[in-house]
Every structure is written in structure tokens, then in C-alpha cells.
Design a protein around this nucleic acid. Structure first.
Lengths: 226, 226
DNA sequence: TTAGTTATAGTGAGCAATCGCTCACGGAAT
DNA sequence: ATTCCGTGAGCGATTGCTCACTATAACTAA
């Protein structure tokens, strides 16, 4: 069911070549995007011939998608490794925010690639990618919020799927805001240049925002004294 | 101060040509993006020669940016025309959400172009664009939330700039989620196919989320996590 | 009026450069 | 003998942009 973007030869490739090809691809595609990146240049940087790349992948797009998959796996490891406890939602949120802030450094290329797939405008490809990339967080968040609701940890009057969507929206955009050019500038406009030197400000304010959104219940449904 | 992306000849151009050139550009760039759009094709669709386009703009990029500016002006008119009252924040939010849902139809090309600028990865250009595009909402939201805070309409313990940022993040992503391929698929994953047929669900849940986030004030100043 | 000058509007064939991809080939392993 | 790994020069197609050209209009001088 899950689409595979590489040819069989890529499965048979030596570890050395597989890593070289993926690394060079991730670097170039994350920096330049699918269109602007140049296959001939990537091949040179990977230390392989163009011909070999085309033994591994049918098209540039397939190569790109394979790199995206790899990057998303890595990103998930980084992010979810931090959150795989059964903490309460706000503790998880805090860990996520801090993990996001941490990935804005050396691992920024993975986030940039994540941002790149956002640009795929071809409904079929977009659907396939979204399923792969967001599918995990969609179901994870949804189940988790549902459980928290049953637990009484969060308000009972909310549509969990929608709240999971808002939650993911804030975190996804936060990721971009720490990493991708336009989103960084946008964040600076709202919060000033020094927002990048003050991680605690972001953590505490976003948690304040989320806590209220998730726990407050309107007066007439009652939930006081906490 | 504000950068101008067109040559003087474009100011002198006849209404007929100016509109034709902007319309064709907005259509093509919003559909295909800066890279994939083809100048020769746009020229044909606009009913002018390529040569004339280059009398109007130095480069394809300048042409693109000019189209973006025009689209953003239109988008602002649509969106802010709805909100230029002095309603309370939640009323404004509701109007905004409904306006966003309404623009997902015929005016989707403007939103798509908005999404395109998100992809500009060249810090200088990104900064210039962000200032133009987000600058208005950044200051508007910030001032408005600050005023609401002084009024006592919203919680007193929040950082207005940050909350304005979260607010804008949710609305901006909502806009993309109703219009751009990847974001549409993502929204479907979280909330199901029928989310696009149930505008009220989005309105009521997002308002619920925002109301709580903005009005709830925590009993003590306790920090979360550990 | 008329002829000459200048400036701008508008054209579109085609140049020059880029780049995705091929394919004929050599080498190695089985 | 067959199969697969690996090469890289270069083909073919695309495309941003140029430039030599015509058309038109305004102004000037005789």
C-alpha cells in the first residue's frame, strides 16, 4: 500500500553509497528545494555518477521523496524519542517545544525538508506525503488527547480531532519558525529579534496558551476549583 | 524605504495592460509557483509579448514579487474589510474564520500566492516580504490584544506579542488548510474528509480553543513540566 | 504644413545556458 | 556467459532573457 519511491537497485546498494546518496540529497534538497537543486551537482557531492543515481531512482522527484522519507524518519526519532513517555499533555508539550528549539541547530536540514514537502502541489503526491508525514502525529495526538479527556485531564467539551489539529498546527509552525527563512522573519516581526535568544519566553507563553485552551471549560459546564 | 519591484514603464502602462499582466501573473504563479511558471506562457496568456514584460520588470522574480504584492493587497481588503470594527476579540476571530472559509473558493489564488512566498528562502527577500505581508497583521493583532488586555477582556498574565503570534499562526494555517494541496490533505487526516462540508464545526471548535486560551487565567503562577 | 528628431510602446524570433536523463561502455562477481 | 555495478560525456528539451525591429506620438524648426 505504502508507495516506494526507489528502485530495487537502491535496496541492494552498499551502506557507503546509500548513506552518501541520502546525505547529499538531504543537504541539497533541504537547502535549495526540489526545483532548484541540481542532480548533477548532487551526484558530484555524493561522490557517485549521475548514471548510478538513475539506477537507484526513476526520476528526480522519486529521489527527492526518498530523501524526504529518510529525513522524516530521523525527525520523528529526534522528536518522539523525547515524548514517548506517558506524561500528561502539558509535560509532553513542554518536551516537544524544547525538542523543537534544540533541532533548530544542526538538525535544521530535516525541518527544512519537512517544510519543502509543504510545497508539493499535486494532489496525489500531496495526499501520499501528508499521510506518511502527518499520519503519525495525527493519530498519536488524537488518541492521546482522547485518552486525556477520558482521564479528566483536559476539558470534556472539546472535539478531540480538532484540538489535535490546533495543537499540531502550533507545533509545526513553531518548528518552521525556528528554522525556515520566511517563518523566522515572521516570528521576529511578532516578537522581536531577541526571541531566538530567549527560549524560556516561548516555552512559558506557549504552555500558558495551551494549558488554558485545553483545560478551561466554559462556566456553564462547570469545572471550578480544579 | 519600501522596495519597488517594477520598472517605471509599468507605472506608465495602460490600465488594460497593467491588469492583464497582473492577472495572468497571479494566475500562473499561484498555480505553479515561481520556479515552474513559464514567462513565455504567461506573456501569451496576458496577451502581451515577452519583450514588454521585460520592459516592465527586470527579472522573473521582480514580476513574481509584484504579483505577490497585488495579491496581498487584495487579500487584505477581503479579510480586513470584514474585521474593521471594534468588536471584541472573539467576535473578530469568528468573522476572520468565516472570511477565511469564504476565500477558499474563487479567491483561492490569492491565498495560494500567499503560501508561495512562504517558500522564498533567501534571507533578504524573505525579510522584505515578511515585513510587507505579515507586518500589518503583526502590529494590528499586537495592538488589539494589548488593548483588550487593558480593557480586561482577556487575561492579564500573557505576553501580548506571543499571543498575537499564536493567534496569527492558527489563522494563517487555517487559510492554507482550506486552500493549498498539502495543508488540505493534512487537515483531512486530522479531521476527516467531511471537514470541508462542515464549516460550523471549525468555527465553533476554534473559537472554543481561542476563547479559553485568551481568557483563562491560572490560579497561581505555577510552572509546568519539571 | 512638412520634415526631422527623440522617446517610448510593443513585438517575437532566437540565443545561450541550464539540466534532467540516457546509453554505450568497462569492470567485477558469480 | 550472464548479471549487475558504476561511469560520465553529451543529447534534447526547456526557458529566461535579449535585441533589432516597427509603430506611434510629441515636439521642434523652417
Amino acid at each position: 500500500m505504502d508507495k516506494v519511491y526507489h528502485k530495487e537497485a537502491f535496496d541492494r546498494a552498499s551502506e557507503k553509497y546509500r548513506i552518501a546518496v541520502l546525505t547529499a540529497g538531504i543537504n541539497e534538497f533541504s537547502e535549495l528545494g526540489l526545483e532548484k537543486a541540481n542532480i548533477n551537482v548532487i551526484a558530484k557531492k555524493a561522490g557517485v555518477s549521475v548514471g548510478l543515481l538513475y539506477k537507484y531512482f526513476d526520476t528526480k522527484e522519486d529521489y527527492f521523496f526518498t530523501c524526504v522519507e529518510e529525513a522524516m524518519r530521523t525527525l520523528e526519532d529526534i522528536i518522539e524519542g523525547v515524548v514517548n513517555s506517558n506524561d500528561k499533555i502539558l509535560v509532553r508539550a513542554e518536551k516537544l517545544i524544547r525538542a523543537i528549539q534544540a533541532t533548530s541547530g544542526a538538525d535544521s536540514k530535516y525541518v527544512k525538508l519537512y517544510n519543502e514537502i509543504t510545497k508539493v502541489s499535486e494532489i496525489e503526491g500531496a495526499a501520499e506525503l501528508a499521510k506518511k508525514v502527518e499520519g503519525i502525529s495525527a493519530t498519536t495526538y488524537n488518541e492521546f488527547i482522547l485518552a486525556a479527556q477520558k482521564n479528566g485531564d483536559i476539558r470534556s467539551d472539546c472535539d478531540c480531532a480538532m484540538f489535535a489539529f490546533f495543537f499540531d498546527t502550533l507545533l509545526m509552525t513553531l518548528q518552521f519558525s525556528y528554522t525556515c527563512d520566511y517563518y523566522r522573519e515572521r516570528l521576529k516581526l511578532f516578537c522581536g529579534e531577541d526571541i531566538f535568544d530567549n527560549d524560556e519566553r516561548m516555552v512559558s507563553e506557549l504552555l500558558k496558551f495551551l494549558e488554558a485552551a485545553f483545560t478551561f471549560e466554559h462556566a456553564d459546564v462547570k469545572k471550578f476549583g480544579k
